[in-house]
Computed example of a mutant assay.
Amino acid sequence: MNIVKKPGYAVDSVDRALQLIMLLQERDWLRITDAAKALDVAPSTAHRLMAMLVYRGFALQDDQRRYCVGPALRADAAAGPARTALSIARPHLEALALSVRETVSLVERVGITARYLFTAEGPQLLRVGNRTGTVLPAHLSSGGKAILATLPQPSVAQLYTGRQAQQSGSSLAAAELAGLQRELEEARTRGYAVNLGRTEPDLAAVGAPLAIAGRPAALAVSISAPLSRGGDIQQPAIIEALHATCEAVMRDLHAEGVPPAL
């Protein structure tokens, strides 16, 4: 058996990034302080390394500033279709961002989280930045709610009151769940979900699912803007463009044989 030695030309930053990837694969969630300790580097260094992994899809960040394995490292069966869906959706999202002049994202629901797989930034000077790699609570984000709205009410209730939700501390109280169900019913009626300052105080967003009528979705497209333009992105022309993009992506997914519910 050959002994693998550290190369004499080893690049420390690359070595640390690879160690960081291994840590992500070993743990469910990883905080910057823990990563810095494991790598024996300053937290600022660990943060810069992690930021690059997020940018390239190797890591995802949630709203508690924790990190987990990103789509580029996933080995599950859904990873292939998800990557194919992303490549199909990308040109449509970029075209929509230019058309509506706001930031557009492809969002995936994983359990009770909404994970941003890709972002096309809008051209305006004051805009929402790149969300790729961000993980948010699905019941607060527009994309997450758009996807949840394609589920039957009992399935939504199970997600937020079941054993897994209770064990993870993410269960919703009865009043919170009732409020969420009302929001989802409104989203089903109008065809899109809204987030006005729920995930970030100065952010507004609308989201629509990539779904076939009567079937649960796994992905959504969202349009994000500063809260001051929250009313603008709900104008009929913007919502029509959002729905047209979703329909175009669904047509291309069907043509490529990619299932809409990933």
Results as ranks from 00 to 15, higher is better:
Asn2Met: 03
Val4Lys: 13
Ala10Ser: 12
Arg16Val: 00
Arg16Ala: 13
Arg27Leu: 05
Arg27Lys: 14
Asp28Phe: 10
Ser44His: 02
Ala46Glu: 05
Arg48Met: 02
Leu53Gly: 12
Leu53Met: 10
Leu53His: 15
Arg56Met: 11
Arg56Ile: 07
Phe58Lys: 00
Asp63His: 14
Tyr67Ser: 04
Tyr67Thr: 04
Val69Trp: 00
Val69His: 01
Val69Pro: 01
Ala77Thr: 08
Ala77Phe: 10
Thr84Ala: 07
Leu86Met: 14
Ile88Tyr: 15
Glu94Cys: 03
Leu98Arg: 09
Thr103Ser: 07
Val104Arg: 00
Val104Glu: 00
Val107Ala: 07
Glu108Arg: 03
Gly111Asn: 08
Thr113Val: 03
Ala114Glu: 09
Tyr116Pro: 01
Thr119Leu: 01
Gln124Lys: 11
Val128His: 13
Arg131Thr: 04
Ser142Asp: 00
Ala146Glu: 06
Leu148Pro: 02
Ala149Tyr: 01
Gln153His: 13
Ala157Arg: 15
Gln158Asn: 09
Gly162Arg: 14
Gln166Leu: 12
Ser170Arg: 15
Ser171Glu: 14
Ser171Ala: 15
Leu172Met: 01
Ala173Lys: 13
Glu176His: 13
Thr189Glu: 13
Gly191Trp: 03
Val194Phe: 01
Thr199Ile: 12
Gly207Thr: 02
Gly207Met: 06
Pro209Asn: 14
Ile212Gly: 13
Pro216Gln: 07
Ala217Lys: 11
Ala218Asp: 12
Leu219Pro: 15
Leu219Phe: 13
Leu219Met: 09
Pro236His: 11
Ile238Ala: 09
Cys246Trp: 12
Asp252Cys: 13
Leu253Thr: 09
His254Ser: 06
Val258Phe: 04
Pro259Ala: 12
Pro260Gln: 08
